[in-house]
Amino acid sequence: MSNVPADLHYTKDHEWIKVAADGTAVIGITDHAQAALGDVTFVDLPKVGAAFNHGDVFGTVESVKAASDLYSPISCEVLEANSGLNNSPDLVNREPYGGAWMIKVKVKNPAELASLLDAAGYAATL
């Protein structure tokens, strides 16, 4: 069974988001997503300052088997992209909720968070 931490929000497309009190958030993909992708070989991430609306494609995660788009769970502006994934894309398989966070963002519209799934809601989709 895949791991679904209780303190995160989720999309049906298998992204997770962890929101901090200061209005920033960190986004990645779930344990279920990394298992389905298999060996990740490359993560294509946006530049600092890029802006996305809820549901926009913000990057691509590539495995031996397939390339999959990454969807922004919320409207946001990118503050930092995880450069560690450049040299170690396999972190996505090993630490999907830790070392393999993908982007740190400024949340534009906190009200959108209400549309996301909680851990129980996401687990029910798997």
Partner: peptide, 8 residues
């Protein structure tokens, strides 16, 4: 390819 992306 000298790249990270796979041409499919």
């Amino acid at each position: 390819l000298d790249d990270r992306r796979i041409a499919r």
